[in-house]
Every structure is written in C-alpha cells, then in structure tokens.
Design a protein around this nucleic acid. Structure first.
Length: 755
RNA sequence: GCCGGAGUGGUGGAACUGGCAGACACGCGGGACUCAAAAUCCCGUUGGGCUCAAACCCAGUGCGGGUUCAAGUCCCGCCUCCGGCACCA
C-alpha cells in the first residue's frame, strides 16, 4: 500500500577495481563495466526487482561531475582545504588513507601495516560538524544502538579546559588539554609528543641533549613503522626546559614522553602523577614529584602505589582546598581565564576527513594549481574534469594522472597563465556520501538533484547495510547532508531515518570476499533448485541481522516446501480450470468460521508482522505453517475446493510473492488471475475470522503445566477460575490441599497455587 | 581497561510487552510404497524415570544466587565467545 522507491546503483570507483585491473592487465573502466554487467545478471537470476531506470554508477562522468561539484561547494564554504601533516600511508595500496580506513593499524582494504608520512593532502572539515553529528544521533532512535554508540565513541567528545604554560624565558606558550582542571595544582611536569613543535625548535636551537635527540628519532621512526603498537613501558627524556605553572608560577620541567600522542588534543599534556595512572608510572620511573590534590569523600585515595583517578575534594590546592571536583573544575578554569592562561574547551577525537588519494580510479579533484594564484577551483561550468583513459595506472606512490601530460597541463581559470591540474583523486567514500539524492533525478544535467524531489522522498525511510559502515559511510553521509542543509539545498538534517544492519554470511569463519576468493556463487544452486528455492532458503537460514556460517544443508527443505505448495496449486486448478478466480463460487470464503480459516488468518497476521520487523526467517516458517495447516485439514477430510482451503491458498500465494516471486506468479496465473501478483493487494486477516467461540487455556499448578481447558471466548475471570478448578485433573491434584490463590490471565492461562 | 551483543536439542533456529521452552526446518531412527533404489507419504525425535504400551512423574535455556503465582525473558554476582573503542590526557 505504500509508494516505494527501490533503486540500485554502483559504487564503482576505488582501489579494488584498480588493483584487479592491474593484476589482469585490463583498463579499470573495462573491468568495472564488465563486473556491473555480471552482477546485474546475477540480480536478474535471483529475481531481485529494482527500478533500473534510476541506475547510477559513480564512475560515470554524468555522476562524478556532481561529486566534483560537491567538492567545489565544500571548498567555497571553507570546508575543503589542503594541508600538510602526518597521514596514514598504505605501502601496498600506495596511497593515503582516512583515519576511518585504518583498522588496528592496518589498511582496511589489504591488511598491510599502515605507515605515517608527512604529505600535503586535501581534507574535508568534518570536525566543524562534530557537535551536530553527535547531537543529532538522538534523532536516530530507529538506528541500532550499537551503531549510535560506535559513532559517539568515534566522535569522542570530552569537556575540559585548555591551559597554556609559558616557558621560562618567554617563548611561545605550550597549550594542553585536560578533562581534569581540578587537578591542576597537582601538575608536576609537562609531557610532549616527539612530534610536538617545541621538540623540533629545541633541537634546531641545539639545546636538546644527543641522547634526547636520539630518543626523538627512535620514537618517530617506531611510529612511522607502526604507530599503533602500544609500548607499555613508559619512556621519556627531560628537555632541560621548564615552564611556569600558570597559577603558582613554580617551574615545571618539560619531558618528551612516548605515551603522549600527537594525534589527540595538542600533543602536550600536563602530568598529574597522583591522579593519572600513566603519569604516575612515568613519574615513578623518573623520580619526578608526585602531589596529591584530590581526596575522595570516602574510601581510599592516593596511596603511593597507584594513581587515584576518581573525583573527590581538593587538597594541597591553596585557595581551592575543600572544593569538590565539579566545583574545582569551574573555579580553576575561571582563575585561568582571569589570568589569560586558559579557558573551558571541548575536545574531539574526530579528525578531519582526508579525501585525496594518489590513485587513478576515482573522481579527479577539481582544482588547478597556478604558480601565480595558488590553488584555484575549476569553474562549475567546466565540470566534469574528465578522468583521462590514457595513463600509466601502476601505483608508484604518486598519482597516475601525473603521467598524462594533456591532463596535467592546463590554464589558470583566474589569470589564464599556464597551470597544473590537481592529480589526486577523491576517496570513494565521497562518491557514496550523496548518491541517494541522485537516484531521484539520475540524469539531470543542470544540478546534482532536484530539491523538491529530494525533499519529497528523503530522508531514506529504510536503509539497509552492513555494520562495517558504522563509522565510515554512515558518518560521512550524515556530514554531507548537514552541509547541504546548511547550503539550503535540502531540508532535512539526517539522510537515513531507519537503519537495519544486516549480518554477514561467512564461509569457514571468514567474510566472503573477492580478495579471499571464498565466495559461494549462487549460480550453481540456482541452476539446480531454481532462484525461488535459493531465495527462500537464504531467508530461512536465520535472522538477517546476525552473521551466519554458510552451508546448504537445509536447502532441500525450502525446495520441498515449494514443490508441495506447487502440487497443491496444481491439484486445485486441475479440478477447476476456471479463467477468473473471482468467478469461482465460494472464493470469497464467506462461510462460517472454521479452524482452518482461523489458523490461516492468524498465520497471515504473523507473516505480515514478521516482515515488518525484518524477521524474514520466521515469515518463511509462517508460510510453511499455512501449508501444513491446509494439508492437515485435507488429511482430516477437508476439501481443497472448500472456501476456507481456497482462501488459504490465495493468502499463501500472495504472502509468498515477495519471497518466491516466480513460483507465486506462476501459481497466481494458474489460479485464474490475469494481472501480475505484484499488483495484488497484501492479504488482510479479518477480525471476524480470528474469533472463535471457545478458547483453549493452559492450567498450571504452582507454575507447572497440568491441564488444558476449553472456555467460552468471552468468559470472565470468575468463570475461567471455576472451570479450571472443576477440571478433573486439577481437582484431583487439589484434593487434600488448600487453594491459596488462583491467577487468571484471560486469553492465556490459569495458575492455581496449592499449599 | 571501557562500551555494546550473544550463550536454548545432534544442527540452523523459534518463543514480540515475564505466561504451554524447543515453533518451522535440517539431520537421524522406524514404517508405507517399490523386485530394489531414488523421490514421495506417515510416525517418532531435549534428557531421564516408570510402563507391554499409554497415561504419568522428575530435570532442563552457560554457572551461582534472587524477585515473582509464574523467569530463556527481570535483578545481583560470575564464566565463555563475538564486535567496537583504547597510553584519548
């Protein structure tokens, strides 16, 4: 009864296609197009129905033109920028990766250990939306909690204070972030990462000891090789430089420490050994002072053996003594602000999204580098910047586009002088961050999408995908939609209203994947049993949100079910070769309610509910039960020609249609319908059919099942109670005992409590 | 370490708000049909006790407690597995 848009498209740019192309000596575009054809054939073989008039592929210029347009919009808004910094580098894929694409220190794609390199790259300023992305998670009540939590953790908001420590001698202050300003008076040293600016400056000035300098090199190298390996042993070197404590003026030494990360906060921390375990371990090892400044209201506090990280009341903190941690955080921040040495600050774990890739198979970044005007955006009218065919697309660490002179050399849109094109391409996650809007006008040439169409259809009511996208695609799309909303181009804050994360089918415990070569192609099974059997079985294996290990042991069951169903249809239609089902006498099943009818209407309700809840495995079992019910009815002497049986077959056929469309369509035609079952309405159970004169209730004694009784459907509690106690079995059990209580749950059961 | 999720027959799984544990299948055992087999159909299939048999009884949803007339479901404490985050200051 709903108008549903069910489009399909191909996220077709990216490394897998390029790598496969290199391995097979085929151009990526040929390889990709061939695979699209192949996958479409498979969709058809499965009988999967999509609106193919809306098909898009992110590698078509018609599509990526607008991906480039999106880049320009972000650039205009200052949300796309180029910066030099330490980036994740995959030595095997020969490209940089976004933080989100690094899993356990390895490349999400190929599993190679990721290195750090200093490179100039393009970023999207997703951090500008950190708060909005976090806050709006509360709009996503129909997303799995798991995904919301993962995003919240990834964004990683923490409240605290930014504090500046001025070096003795008056150099630029060192800024730190802390969530515990209440422990400021317990800070006994600063610790900085090896990559921190001050380290380089000290080294350049020659004021770093040779040992400390060697340590910095070792640390940097270790992090380039694998910055994710956690060194449990704290290690550091004194720089010999001190800063003054912003409140007491006391000098505090600056140490270089291996446990301070450049990638979080400012790359420098104030160390409070009494109240932070890491600082404690470091201070203990290097005999740095430890000052207790927080004491819990009750229970043990700092004991000299480990840091006390909880909250409590401030001590050894001068004027702040006696304040609770909460009050202390505010008071200390105020005091810092008054001195101009700090302020309240919110810090995020989220980093900006690195979107440039030094690879061929992606949308070229539409920028031009002019020796005079610097980075200049390609004018909108010149889009798309076409990806040239003729390149040496071997990975060299530099973009293959550099090898195409005709592409590389261009003129500056500003001054008309000679200029070079940007040769990096965009991360494919940019392509997929907006595609759902393109489906509404896939061939529109004047805009990426039409606002009114997008506002009518979106947000997507039901999104389905793997949980592996929890912090990649699903975060990026949310970001892009928020940017477009702020540009006034869409009117909704979130792209996906409801999210269903489906599980993965594994083979021998592994994700089936092209790269592992352990994919079970459906073709063989489909050839042997037909698409409907394979569809039905696949749905029946288990709940779709769960991972499942693939085996085809039960496929026979689905096949048998369809054969039994088909035979039943043949039996009915052989006896009644009627052209129009509606002309058949008794088809409307207006007869008196019978058991079969009640059961089938009940099961119809169940199948409808199951499908709404994505419990497709039990929906299939519900259908099996309908068929079983009809066969039991037949076994008891009922006729397939009876209105009840005919109606049951009619319901079953319509419920089967989305699951096994070919079989259902064929049956539908045999049953005398001339229009496709796809246009038939969904069966509606009638309340009248669901009613029955009597109900079967369970009778328990002390919570244990002892008898079943039949009671009138409208019996009140007292009647039910009397009938239960009157039951022969119950009466005999109650003999000689006292009935302490009788719990009556109408429609369900009676529990007799005996003492 | 922190945050999520899961643990049910031989197997996949079902049981929506506490209310008949094991739906529906697979597999297995037995039977019918057949010269025989396949296919199909019928019966059985949580474990144990008792019985010629049925009826019946007891135990049972990872482990130990608890709440409740009633717990796979709720609470407390554990164990195991899976997923995410993690020297995050």
């Amino acid at each position: 009864g709903f108008t549903v848009l069910s489009p399909m498209g191909w996220d077709a740019f990216g490394l897998p296609a390029e790598n496969a192309a290199i391995a097979n000596q085929i151009h990526p575009s040929v390889w990709t197009k061939r695979n699209i054809v192949r996958m479409k054939e498979q969709f058809h073989a499965w009988g999967v129905g999509f609106d193919w008039t809306r098909e898009v592929a992110s590698c078509d210029p018609e599509y990526y033109r607008w991906t480039q347009w999106l880049f320009l919009k972000l650039y205009e808004k200052g949300l796309a920028y180029r910066a030099k910094g330490a980036v994740n580098w995959c030595p095997s894929c020969q490209t940089v990766l976004a933080n989100e694409q690094v899993v356990d220190g390895a490349c999400e794609r190929c599993g190679s250990t990721v290195e750090l390199r200093d490179l100039e790259q393009w970023y999207f300023k997703i951090t500008a939306y950190a708060d909005a992305l976090l806050d709006d998670l509360k709009l996503l009540g129909q997303w799995p909690e798991k995904v919301r939590v993962m995003q919240a953790n990834w964004i990683g908001r923490s409240e605290g204070a930014s504090i500046r420590f001025t070096p003795t001698g008056g150099a630029a202050p060192i800024e730190v972030f802390t969530t515990r300003p209440d422990t400021l008076l317990g800070a006994t040293f600063l610790a900085v990462a090896a990559e921190h600016g001050i380290v380089g400056r000290l080294r350049d000035a020659g004021s770093l000891s040779p040992e400390a300098s060697a340590f910095v090199d070792r640390l940097k190298r270790a992090r380039v090789e694998n910055r994710f390996a956690i060194e449990t042993e704290k290690e550091g070197f004194d720089t010999g430089v001190t800063v003054s404590h912003p409140l007491t003026g006391k000098p505090l030494p600056i140490w270089i420490a291996n446990y301070v990360l450049m990638g979080y906060g400012t790359g420098a921390i104030m160390a409070v050994p009494a109240h932070d375990q890491r600082d404690f371990e470091f201070a203990t090892k290097y005999r740095l002072p430890i000052v207790e400044v927080i004491r819990p209201e009750d229970g043990p506090g700092y004991d000299g053996k480990a840091a006390f990280e909880g909250e409590g009341r401030m001590v050894n903190s001068g004027a702040f003594d006696g304040l609770s941690s909460g009050e202390g955080k505010r008071a200390v921040t105020e005091a810092l602000k008054a001195k101009g040495a700090g302020e309240a600050r919110v810090n995020f774990r989220l980093r900006d999204w690195l979107i440039s890739r030094q690879r061929y198979w992606g949308a070229p970044i539409p920028m031009i580098h002019c020796p005079k005007d610097g980075a200049v955006p390609v004018p909108e009218k010149d889009l798309p910047v076409l990806l040239p065919d003729q390149v040496a697309f071997k990975p060299t660490g530099e973009s293959p586009l550099l090898s195409n002179e005709a592409f590389l050399h261009t003129t500056c849109p500003k001054c008309g002088g000679p200029a070079r094109r940007e040769t990096d391409t965009m991360d494919t996650f940019v392509d997929s961050s907006w595609y759902f809007m393109r489906f509404l006008s896939p061939h529109l040439e004047t805009a990426p999408f039409q606002k009114d169409a997008v506002d009518r259809w979106l947000p997507v009511n039901q999104y389905i995908g793997g949980v592996e996208h929890a912090i990649l695609h699903l975060l990026y799309s949310r970001f892009i939609v928020k940017v477009l909303r702020d540009l006034g181009m869409v009117s909704f804050p979130e792209p996906f209203e409801r999210l269903f994360t489906q599980g993965m089918i594994t083979k021998a415990g592994h994700k089936m994947s092209k790269s592992k070569g352990n994919v079970v192609p459906p073709d063989t099974l489909i050839r042997r049993y037909g698409a409907d059997t394979v569809r039905l079985y696949t749905l029946f294996v288990g709940p779709p949100e769960k991972d499942a290990e693939w085996n085809d042991r039960g496929v026979e069951g689905a096949y048998r079910f369809l054969v039994r169903y088909w035979k039943m249809v043949e039996e009915v239609t052989a006896a009644h070769p009627v052209a129009s089902a509606d002309a058949r006498p008794g088809w409307a099943a207006s007869g008196p309610p019978r058991e079969l009818r009640r059961r089938v209407h009940q099961l119809t309700q169940q199948v409808r509910d199951d499908m709404d809840r994505f419990h497709l495995n039990t929906a299939v079992s519900g259908l099996m039960q309908i068929l079983n019910a009809v066969q039991d009815y037949q076994a008891e002497g009922g006729s397939l020609e009876s209105p009840e049986a005919l109606e049951s077959i009619d319901f079953a056929t319509r419920l089967l249609a989305p699951l096994a469309p070919h079989t259902a369509e064929g049956a539908w035609e045999r049953l005398g319908h001339s229009e496709s079952i796809a246009r038939a309405p969904w069966p509606v159970p009638s309340p009248e059919a669901l009613q029955s004169a009597t109900k079967s209730l369970v009778v328990q004694v002390n919570g244990k099942l002892r008898a079943h009784i039949q009671v009138p459907a409208d019996a009140d509690r007292e009647t039910i109670r009397k009938l239960a106690l009157a039951d022969e079995k119950i009466a005999s059990l109650a003999a000689g005992k006292t009935v302490a209580q009788v719990v009556v749950v109408p429609g369900r059961l009676v529990n007799v409590v005996l003492k």
